[in-house]
Amino acid sequence: MQNRSARLYAAAAILIWASLAALGVKLAHLPPFLLVGATLTFAGLITLPTLRQWRVPASTFAIGVAGLFGYHFFLFVAFRNAPPVEANLLNYLWPLLIVLLAPLLLPGTRLTRRHLLAAATGFVGAMLVVSKGHAGFDSSYLGGYGAAAFAALLWASYSLLTRRVPPFPTAAVGGFCLVSGLLSLSCHFLLEPATPLQAGDLPWILLLGAGPMGGAFFLWDKAMKTGDAREMGLMAFLTPLLSTVILVLAGGGTLDSWALAGGLLIVGGALAGTRPTASA
């Protein structure tokens, strides 16, 4: 029953994250750090009624902020210093890293051949969906590639370490969001041109802050704390596929053969890796 609930939390988080691209199109004119800062700050502000539950050890709070702010910071550094497709491919190392790092960070967890094969299949599928067969890594962008890989490592580590630290209420994620949002806004003022928000931006910022840049983090926290980390990682490969499907439904993309082939691999890998066995 616990695994079933965790899968539902993870599925909800992944589905909400998949809406990010379609919703983000509405705010494409905003610089990245301003967009992340505004949405994360809103996500933190709307959870202020749970402020008393934000009292967690300093080390736990640092892990939370490193996960949310650190991940987005290095991802945007990657997008600035490497081609977006290749940077995004490396970004999708994070589900694979969750699977691979689980035995190292979570005592009592081990990997089977089935998990490794499922993770490799899911990653190849995600690569096909994201790259559409046109990725080409260039050594002149090593700095950007490194930033993308480090972002993936930060998010995978954060996701797993929430199980390793002393138990804390999921409401504390609101504090992680608020501090990460304020740090992102600071990066905007330091690194990006001043960009005034327009009246029409507010509804989309609120929607993003309540959804893929806010609410999904709370659902993911519940999933990682209560479920099998290896399964959560495998399910996360569905994110780029679902994102493509939502974009198509919103009229902003096409479901080509690369997405279909990648989707089959992702779904097949996830099903193979999450089916219950006596030995897993």
Results as ranks from 00 to 15, higher is better:
99 V>A: 03
80 R>F: 13
104 L>Q: 12
117 L>A: 15
95 P>C: 06
95 P>E: 03
85 V>G: 07
71 Y>M: 11
120 A>Q: 09
79 F>Y: 15
102 A>M: 04
119 A>R: 00
93 L>M: 13
118 A>I: 14
122 G>C: 12
108 G>E: 10
122 G>Y: 01
115 H>T: 11
79 F>W: 14
72 H>P: 10
74 F>T: 07
118 A>P: 10
91 N>S: 09
88 N>I: 13
89 L>S: 05
93 L>Q: 04
122 G>F: 03
70 G>K: 02
95 P>A: 05
77 V>C: 10
99 V>F: 03
92 Y>I: 11
118 A>W: 05
66 A>S: 15
113 R>I: 12
95 P>N: 04
120 A>Y: 07
103 P>N: 06
74 F>M: 12
101 L>H: 01
67 G>W: 00
120 A>L: 15
106 L>E: 10
77 V>R: 04
102 A>T: 09
122 G>L: 07
94 W>T: 02
123 F>N: 00
110 R>D: 10
95 P>D: 02
94 W>K: 01
94 W>C: 00
107 P>G: 05
120 A>P: 08
64 G>E: 02
105 L>K: 02
101 L>I: 09
66 A>F: 11
84 P>F: 09
79 F>T: 13
120 A>H: 06
97 L>M: 14
90 L>D: 02
117 L>C: 12
90 L>S: 01
113 R>M: 13
64 G>D: 03
96 L>H: 02
110 R>K: 13
89 L>T: 06
122 G>D: 07
116 L>A: 15
118 A>R: 03
117 L>S: 12
106 L>F: 05
68 L>S: 01
72 H>D: 09
114 R>Q: 13
101 L>A: 08
67 G>K: 00
79 F>H: 11
65 V>A: 06
123 F>Q: 01
70 G>H: 02
87 A>Y: 01
76 F>W: 11
88 N>Q: 15
122 G>T: 07
79 F>I: 15
93 L>Y: 02
86 E>G: 08
121 T>W: 03
107 P>V: 08
70 G>M: 06
102 A>N: 02
109 T>E: 15
63 I>S: 00
117 L>D: 09
88 N>R: 09
91 N>Q: 12
107 P>Q: 08
76 F>I: 10
90 L>A: 04
80 R>V: 13
73 F>E: 02
88 N>L: 14
123 F>T: 09
113 R>N: 13
66 A>I: 13
77 V>A: 08
85 V>I: 15
69 F>A: 07
108 G>V: 09
80 R>D: 15
67 G>C: 08
77 V>G: 01
86 E>K: 06
80 R>M: 14
87 A>I: 06
92 Y>L: 06
78 A>C: 12
84 P>D: 10
66 A>Y: 04
115 H>A: 12
117 L>Q: 09
90 L>P: 00
76 F>K: 02
71 Y>I: 07
68 L>C: 08
84 P>C: 12
88 N>A: 14
119 A>N: 07
111 L>T: 06
98 I>T: 01
82 A>H: 04
83 P>W: 07
89 L>K: 04
96 L>F: 11
94 W>L: 05
98 I>R: 00
74 F>N: 00
97 L>A: 07
91 N>E: 11
78 A>G: 08
68 L>M: 14
81 N>Y: 11
83 P>K: 10
103 P>W: 02
105 L>D: 04
116 L>E: 12
82 A>E: 03
100 L>P: 01
111 L>V: 11
106 L>M: 11
